[in-house]
C-alpha cells in the first residue's frame, strides 16, 4: 500500500536528513518509528504526503506516486497528525477543524457533517462539535487532532509522537484508540511501552538511515541494538 524506495533528502542548506530509505507498509499494518531526536523521523513522515519531497527516490501510496500531479489526492490518503495539537487545530471550534479537510475536498454539507460526526465518534469525542480547542485538555486535543484527518477517510495515518506529554489516563486512552483504529499507521515515538503494546513491527532510524526494521518482539529482545541507538526496554 505504501512503498518508499531509495528516498534521500537534504535540507536546502545541504545538510543530509534522510539517506536511502526503503520501506513498505501493507494495508492495515501498524508500524512504530523509533530513533533519537534529530534522526529524521518527522522528516520522513512529512515525505509521506509530499510536504517535503526527496531529491532522490520515490514515495508511492495506493499506486499513486507522490508528485505534483497527485499531491492533492495523496493528501486525502495520508492522514498526517502533528505532535503539537495546537498546530494542527487552527480553527475556533472542533467542528470547523474536523470539517476543514472534507470542505476542502468539495464534499456536500450533509456528507461533511456525517464525516465529522463519524470521525469524532471514532476518537471518542462525539458531542464536542461546538467546543473550542482552547478550552480542552491536551488529551482531548490530541484526539480531535486525529479526528481532523479521520474525517478525510485516509488509508494511512502518520502520527508524530502522539503520546508525548500525556498523563497516564489520557495515554492509556490513546493507546486503546490506536489499537482500535482499523488503519495502517506509521507512528514516530519514544514511548517504548506503547510500541510494545500497539505495534507488531518497528523501524529504527538513526542519522537519516533505517538501521533496523523487524518484528517488535525480535527488536526489543536485541539488547545490543537497543543500547546502540539509545533506546530503552519497556
Amino acid at each position: 500500500m505504501l512503498t518508499v524506495q531509495r528516498l534521500s533528502y537534504r535540507y536546502p542548506d545541504g545538510t543530509p536528513a534522510l539517506h536511502d530509505i526503503n520501506l513498505q507498509i501493507a494495508a492495515g499494518e501498524k508500524v512504530a518509528l523509533l530513533g533519537p531526536n534529530g534522526a529524521g523521523k518527522s522528516t520522513l513522515l512529512l515525505h509521506l504526503n509530499g510536504v517535503l519531497r526527496g531529491q532522490d527516490g520515490s514515495v508511492v501510496i495506493d499506486g499513486l506516486t507522490v508528485n505534483d500531479q497527485h499531491i492533492r489526492t495523496v493528501r486525502a490518503r495520508v492522514g498526517m497528525v502533528f505532535q503539537d495539537p495546537d498546530d494542527q487545530l487552527f480553527s475556533p471550534t472542533v467542528f470547523d477543524d474536523v470539517a476543514f479537510g472534507p470542505i476542502h475536498m468539495g464534499l456536500q454539507r450533509a456528507e461533511v457533517e456525517a464525516r465529522v460526526e463519524r470521525a469524532l465518534a471514532q476518537v471518542g469525542m462525539a458531542g464536542n462539535e461546538q467546543r473550542m480547542p482552547h478550552h480542552m485538555s491536551l488529551g482531548q486535543r490530541k484526539r480531535v487532532a486525529i479526528a481532523t484527518v479521520l474525517s478525510m477517510s485516509p488509508t494511512l495515518l502518520a502520527l508524530d509522537e502522539p503520546s508525548a506529554g500525556l498523563d497516564p489516563r489520557a495515554r492509556r486512552g490513546l493507546i486503546e484508540l490506536l489499537q482500535e483504529l482499523p488503519l495502517a499507521m506509521l507512528v514516530s515515538t519514544h514511548d517504548m511501552r506503547m510500541v510494545a503494546e500497539v505495534f507488531p513491527r518497528t523501524i529504527v532510524l538513526s542519522q537519516g538511515r533505517i538501521v533496523a526494521d523487524a518484528a517488535t518482539t525480535t527488536l526489543l529482545a536485541d539488547v545490543d541494538l537497543l543500547e546502540r541507538y539509545g533506546l530503552e526496554r519497556p
Binding site: 504526503n49 510536504v51 492533492r72 489526492t73 495523496v74 493528501r75 486525502a76 498526517m80 502533528f82 498546530d87 494542527q88 487552527f90 480553527s91 475556533p92 470547523d96 476543514f100 479537510g101 470542505i103 476542502h104 475536498m105 468539495g106 464534499l107 481532523t148 484527518v149 478525510m152
Partner: peptide
C-alpha cells in the same frame, strides 16, 4: 499552522476542491 492546513488541503479525483474564497479567507482569519 500553514503546514497543518496544507496537509489537509486534499482533493478527490474529479471533484472541484478548495471551498469558496470567503471560506478560505475565513479560515486564514481564524
Amino acid at each position: 499552522m500553514l503546514r497543518a492546513r496544507e496537509c489537509r488541503s486534499a482533493a478527490l479525483p474529479g471533484q472541484p476542491a478548495g471551498g469558496s474564497i470567503t471560506w478560505r479567507a475565513a479560515v486564514v482569519g481564524r
